[in-house]
Design a protein around this nucleic acid. Sequence first.
RNA 1: UGUCCGAUGGUGUAGUGGUAGCACAGCAGAUUUUGGUUCUGUUAGCCCAGGUUCGAACCCUGGUCGGAUAACCA
Length: 567
Amino acid sequence: MDTPNLSDKTEKKPLNFLEEIIENDLKTGKYKSILTRFPPEPNGYLHIGHAKSICLNFGLAQKYGGKTNLRFDDTNPVKEDVEYVNSIKEDIQWLGFQWAAEYYASDYFEQLYDWAVLLIKKDLAYVDDQTLEEIRQNRGTVTEPGKDSPFRNRSVEENLDLFARMRAGEFKEGDKILRAKIDMAHSNMHMRDPILYRIIHAEHHRTGDKWCIYPMYDYAHGQSDSLENITHSICTLEFDVHRPLYDWFIEKLEIFPSHQYEFARLNLTHTVMSKRKLLQLVKENHVNSWDDPRMPTISGFRRRGYTPESIRNFCDTIGVAKRDNVIDYSLLEFSLREHLNKVALRRMAVLNPLKVVITNYPDNQTEELDAVNNPEDPNAGERKVSFGKEIYIEQDDFMENPPKKYFRLAPGQEVRLRYAYFITCQEVIKDEKGNIIELRCTYDPASRGGNSPDGRKVKGTIHWVSAKHAVKAEARLFDKLFNGINPEEVEEGKTFLDNINPDSLQIQECLLEPALAEAKVMDKFQFERLGYFCADYDFTAEKPVFNRTCTLKDSWSKEQKESEAIK
RNA sequence: UGUCCGAUGGUGUAGUGGUAGCACAGCAGAUUUUGGUUCUGUUAGCCCAGGUUCGAACCCUGGUCGGAUAACCA
């Protein structure tokens, strides 16, 4: 697929606050070049919110000639898995980015341990025997200071001994932890002797059973940044209150001073964005998989038919700032359509077929008509489509009693069959229940290709497939997974699951022009007047399966709905 | 209730003491062999109150509202 250059429109964009910081750091010589990192925990699949972070971290590095590391924040073995590691790598690459180096926080466990020993020796860390509950109690509240642990003043020697024995596996989970010795009365709760290490007797997906003590996020993250000489450590807003601690470790350990900057995470209307909830949707089978096309995961969007370009452009368009935001889903779709419109080949397919017999067309005749592959791209060329006496059109394209300004087919009304002929509806055939089952039309042989030599105009052009040549296929039509702009906003006693849209997936048979049977998995098309579709992973030539990525903008049906609403 | 962060059209995002701009969405029109695309026009905004200043979205003070934060998660 061609990838038009979408970057030209970003050239003159004003700087965001991160770019300002970086340009200043470069200008003042604080850094010669920048190094960012994308640090996911491998405990789930990446979602569109991560895409924002990826585009930011990799994009910033690209823009300023720096590099970006991929680092898995794998400090909690019970939640993590290699399945997630692999999916994360695939998603980043699919988005179009390549990391300079691949690291794991677990690579640093030995170094982190040594630094913990150093902190103990400096009397800046101690082993605490309090229970989880006691620790919670003694932490105080936002208005009251906490209380020092009775174990806070253990000797350096005792702490060293205890910590070594923690590592050696002498204690049960919860028996002991290592804490930093800072200030139990600090106004920032994160500075009230934060926990550095806890005991977890679990198999780690990389280090196996080598360790039974694991560093906490706060103790691991900044030091990992520092070890890699990360210059700009970019994370979301909720880590803002962690920054003093991030800086504290760097200062006490006297290591490379990485700096943390926070931005507002992405929120999308009609979507949930927490890994916990997405995991729940998968585990409880509300969707079929992490890459279900209705999921806001990167793999879900990929399977749905989104292009990496459209997602990157979206991330670029929404900008980055520090205020909370909720992005309108339509902006994502705009970005998608903008790209697909340029690159997707046009094809004809009928979702809800209505048979049309052209009474004055020769019985056994078949014609090959020329059709443009993409009016937006002359290089896309043309194709032939077969035409015959019997065709199918869309049920929506005929009305027996049409309203005003209905440009499509109606009794006595003439329309253009795209790339074919003008036809006029002469007769409506119904079954015994009164359902319209067939139309009898006449065609104007002089209008071959879609133009009449007498210059007469028709207002409507509709798509069609030849009955004799059409290929049956499965169409998967998606709607929003959730009702309501914010699915997390629920009444008492309800959960976001109560906002699930029961009609988010509709599977139906459809008819395709034959060229579509030759598609390859993930090929993207515009089915004219219907929307953008992409060949699903389940697609085979024998049984084509297409996902509707999104509909086309449709000012007609919108107008219709409004006028119906008035009635 | 402490600390921290934030507040510009419906939604995002610029503007850093001198005419509030851009995108999406909306609306209206033109073009169109997709009721698509494209093009044109248009509706709509500085949280409030004081202060500094010739001049404030921007600086100061005080409020208000929203968010984060009190896991042995990240």
